[in-house]
Design a protein around this nucleic acid. Sequence first.
DNA 1: ATATAGATGCAAATGAGTTGCATGTAATTC
DNA 2: GAATTACATGCAACTCATTTGCATCTATAT
Lengths: 132, 132
Amino acid sequence: MPLSHLLRSKGLRATPKRLSIMKILQSCTGPLTAEEVRARVADVDLVTVYRTLQSLHAAELAHEVRFKDGVMRYELSGGHHHHLVCTDCGVVEELEACDVEPLEKKVLKNSRGFKTISEHALEFFGLCNKCA
Amino acid sequence: MPLSHLLRSKGLRATPKRLSIMKILQSCTGPLTAEEVRARVADVDLVTVYRTLQSLHAAELAHEVRFKDGVMRYELSGGHHHHLVCTDCGVVEELEACDVEPLEKKVLKNSRGFKTISEHALEFFGLCNKCA
DNA sequence: ATATAGATGCAAATGAGTTGCATGTAATTC
DNA sequence: GAATTACATGCAACTCATTTGCATCTATAT
């Protein structure tokens, strides 16, 4: 499905800037901050980037991730997954498998105070081959 | 070990405000933001709270956690663990067991680009009994 | 072509967290 | 137990990510 159809299928308009932003997200290996997106798209206001990323996330077309710096990052939703982040240079490696579901089930079963678990956030931090 | 000795063993001074801040952290079930700490301690500047929490973390006396709002929270280090957070009311339940280590080993083994994994962040989000 | 709801840009505001600097005080030394 | 000194605190001002208000613009439906 082309990006423009994806957007329209969620009730969002397929504007040139939106498409550029999505293409950038698509072309990068790791999740990007609003500022990183702005630096890669010609003539976009940072506010527009913020609003676009929020819209994409609200429409479930993008995931939100926060690494240790606390800055929000976005990536196109290509299935649920987690990341391995280098604490030295910041390189990000995507992990295909999630494998947290069994843990999640166990956590819910052992919980006294919770009825449902809908989400989880998991990130790994370490040193990449270069920085080690 | 009393809090004052804990501090001194890490080369930090046992000042009244520091002790108050630590007592508050100790008495609360979940991790607290700087602002939440300030609201519970008499006559402390927010800056002092920030600096104190950072010192405690640097000395490994406190853990840092970030939930979905992106705000940093602190809790006294009582062994590594994770949290279950209610997305509605914000209640936090602590999870005794971690159980991520085997996953971590597997992730490192499967990784092409990383040599070591030193840390991970894992939080679960759902609805507590009250809010469900 | 027109209408309209949604998208964009600019400026200004918000809110978490930080920094510089002067003052205060815990811990050490005599 | 008084003096010394390095660390701790408070205040004001700052930075930086993110948000909001408002006027303008434009993709999409009619």
